[in-house]
């Protein structure tokens, strides 16, 4: 997630809040969540690239764009959901969802998502 922070607040907040944010993030986040975050960053970059390609060059096979872009977005939000569920800080919010259950849900959702993506791609 860190890479995304630079964009919107840079205009207003200056660098000091960001620095502290980065610091806090590094300190309090477990490696596991960092794995998730790096995955999220990858997905976000991939989505941005596709979106730019669509806007700047062509959106002609619109269904392909939607499929590609939606696969990024969908995977992103599913992963973000997983992140929220396994985050120990959120334990009390997800009483019924254990991390294992969360991962199973995540895998199921992703598989369904990819099924529709490939159905829509061609």
């Amino acid at each position: 997630m860190p890479a995304t922070k630079t964009a919107p607040p840079a205009k207003k907040a200056g660098s000091s809040p960001l620095l502290s944010l980065w610091k806090a993030y590094n300190e309090t986040t477990s490696t596991r969540l960092k794995t998730i975050d790096s995955f999220l960053v990858f997905l976000m970059l991939s989505g941005i690239v596709q979106f730019l390609y669509c806007i700047l060059i062509t959106n002609f096979p619109f269904n392909a764009f939607l499929a590609g872009f939606a696969s990024c977005v969908g995977q992103f939000v599913l992963t973000a959901s997983l992140r929220a569920q396994v985050n120990p800080a959120n334990r009390n919010e997800f009483k019924e969802v254990s991390p294992e259950r969360a991962f199973a849900d995540f895998a199921l959702g992703s598989i369904v998502l990819h099924f529709f993506v490939y159905n829509f791609l061609g």
Binding site: V77, S81, A84, Q85, V112
Partner: peptide
């Protein structure tokens, strides 16, 4: 707002919207 809401809504919208576009009558 809670993370539960986020999880429920995001997973519904991301998959549901993509799925709904598979119906030819709905399309884009």
């Amino acid at each position: 707002f809670s993370s539960r809401l986020y999880v429920a809504y995001s997973s519904w919208y991301a998959i549901g919207t993509l799925a709904s576009m598979q119906v030819p009558f709905v399309g884009f």
